[in-house]
């Protein structure tokens, strides 16, 4: 009896300890953006880019953040993964995708399409803050940047608003023990390893993981998962823009090259431009 009991007891206690260590509820911010494979076109009046009738999908970096949260849940380090999106009515589509990829619940903070076009990272961070304050979360994961505005501001702004530590540009996330995470960050010229105490804000870099594909059966199952919609106004968020867009323009076109008939012509042209010594 004793022989049986003692190993199982120690096993039990270590399991229990690990549960005490981290039992995270993770909120993951996902943004609906123009699909990465779409050729972006600027509106003729230069006020923005054309989004009508264009394929949209989840921001690729947010997919990575979501995958990391789902992986932590599969490793039993997290108990629940909740997807969050701030945006117009169609943002519900990316939340469904998030649910198909493994999130348990979804929260949609709704604004009109016109408001969504003018929304800034600060508004998104404020919405995230409100949700975190309403329901207790231990970590917020977001992509390092969205591929539409490339702002990279939501995570640091949110960390500031909540007064939580931040781990930005994460390329590896491990259990740091005693209610913390050990995060490896990609920085210029190398890697930076930090330990952040939970609760914390984390932003995902490209090589953190390989996001899974939302399979058809999982998409079907996701339709039954709960998706809650709350109006941004109800949360008391002031959507007044902090910045104004002066003009949106296409990047400068590359000039077409010319053909040369033979090597001597090429050399003559290079000399003309002063690229080779005479």
């Amino acid at each position: 009896m004793f022989v049986f009991l003692s190993p199982s007891l120690s096993l039990f206690s270590s399991f229990f300890l690990c549960l005490i260590n981290i039992k995270m509820r993770i909120l993951v911010g996902v943004k609906r953006v123009v699909d990465y494979a779409v050729k972006i076109r600027v509106k003729p009046d230069k006020t923005g880019v054309i989004t009508e009738g264009v394929q949209h999908s989840m921001n690729p970096f947010d997919e990575i953040a979501l995958e990391e949260a789902v992986k932590l849940k599969e490793k039993k380090l997290a108990t629940e993964v909740v997807a969050f999106s701030f945006g117009g009515p169609k943002s519900a589509e990316v939340l469904r995708t998030a649910l198909a990829k493994g999130a348990d619940k979804a929260i949609h903070v709704t604004v009109s399409d016109a408001e969504a076009a003018k929304a800034e990272p600060l508004h998104v961070a404020q919405a995230l803050q409100k949700i975190v304050e309403q329901e207790k979360f231990d970590a917020v994961f977001v992509g390092k940047q969205a591929i539409d505005d490339d702002a990279s501001q939501t995570a640091p702004l949110l960390a500031g608003l909540l007064d939580w530590p931040q781990a930005l540009y994460a390329s590896k996330v491990e259990d740091g023990g005693a209610g913390s995470l050990k995060v490896t960050r990609e920085i210029d010229g190398g890697l930076d390893t930090i330990k952040v105490k939970l609760p914390a804000v984390l932003s995902a870099d490209l090589r953190l993981n390989e996001p899974r594909y939302a399979t058809l059966p999982n998409i079907m199952k996701a339709k039954k998962k709960p998706l809650k919609a709350i109006a941004a106004k109800e949360l008391g968020i002031d959507l007044t823009p902090q910045t104004s867009v002066l003009e949106v323009a296409e990047p400068a076109q590359r000039k077409a090259g010319g053909f040369v008939a033979d090597v001597s012509e090429l050399i003559a042209k290079l000399k003309e431009k002063g690229l080779v010594k005479a």
Partner: peptide, 27 residues
């Protein structure tokens, strides 16, 4: 699909250097 998306992101957001190439190859 995974590789296509990964390569597109890498090309858009990361400079090409040796270290990067190695990481990409591993991935």
């Amino acid at each position: 699909y995974k590789l296509r998306k990964y390569r597109a992101m890498k090309q858009r957001y990361y400079e090409n250097d040796e270290e990067n190439e190695k990481e990409t190859k591993n991935f």
